[in-house]
Design a protein around this nucleic acid. Sequence first.
DNA 1: TAATCGTGGAT
DNA 2: TATCCAAGATT
Length: 370
Amino acid sequence: MEVKKLDYNSITTHHIDIYAFQRDLLTWFQEEQRDLPWRKDKDPYKIWVSEIMLQQTRVDTVIPYFHRFIDKFPTIEALAQAEEEQVLKSWEGLGYYSRARNLQAAVREVHEKYGGIVPDNPKDISSLKGVGPYTAGAILSIAYGLPEPAVDGNVMRVLSRILLITDDIAKASSRKIFETAVRDLISHDNPSYFNQALMELGALICTPTSPSCLLCPVREHCQAFFEGKQTELPVKMKKKKQRIVQLASILLSDKEGRLVIQKRPSEGLLANLWEFPNIEISLQYMTEKEQLSTAIKNQYDTHIENIEMIGKIQHVFTHLTWNINVYQAKIDKIREQKNVKQVTLEEIKAYPFPVSNQKMLKQYLDSNHL
DNA sequence: TAATCGTGGAT
DNA sequence: TATCCAAGATT
């Protein structure tokens, strides 16, 4: 039996039988792994798509998106040649939309620069847009079988407990500690299963609150379980409060019932998605309706009448909250403008919208019995 | 390093 | 209801 000594912080020294640990973890994964759509084959493109979608996103949420996305863009070439708007539409509701735009940009680079072959080395794959340390390691290990660490939140939680690592996992610098640990622990016979098993263990057994230690296949290797500290780990700093912004959005319909939509800027929040006209409400002498009316007249150079509120929506982001009052009004034809369109209720279905705006459209349809 | 960037489910 | 937070990357 080989026992290797590992030091990952100044507090404790860890002893772990690496091969027994690998054996217990891999045997468990072999038996208990979930049947997930991106585990059907080792197509690097599909692995890649799944890893991007899974960033900060639950497996159950991703599954239907993954099916639709691969169905629509089955290959590198298909995604490379697609319109960005189509890609964003496929991503609608999944969040973090720069993931979709970065993925397509990176796929186009692979198509042109690498002949459609996803790079199989850390340097090249890490240079692709949207491919950070985790995703690079995930693709290299899962698709190409290379012994590279793929450290995500699961891995940090699991290893913080097994190795009693007390570094704050909210700090970016902590990831390297865990990558060092994975390089020491990883199975060179099956890096793909090893990395996936650590994540699967985190998802199914070694959960954030109330981990199922009695069902854990590696509990005899777990320092936290031995010391009864599993619920004290990982150490993670709390984040501060987000700010709140008051908005007024408005669905503007002309005589044919067409609605005004506008494309958001190409950078920042909800970049390149479409939305209904809106303003940030400030505390001043004008009422909300007056502020809206003035803004619409200035922006679209049109006559506006019958402004009425039809509902309220709260759009909660990670770092801010929009409290939106939703209005509707009648207008004439608007002045032609870039990134502004008047579309029918049929045409509007082709445009990617944030979830908040999808809810607004529902409110509009309901309140007008459409 | 610390903010920014979505959404919905779990507790 | 409030908070956390889920297979992170970018700036």
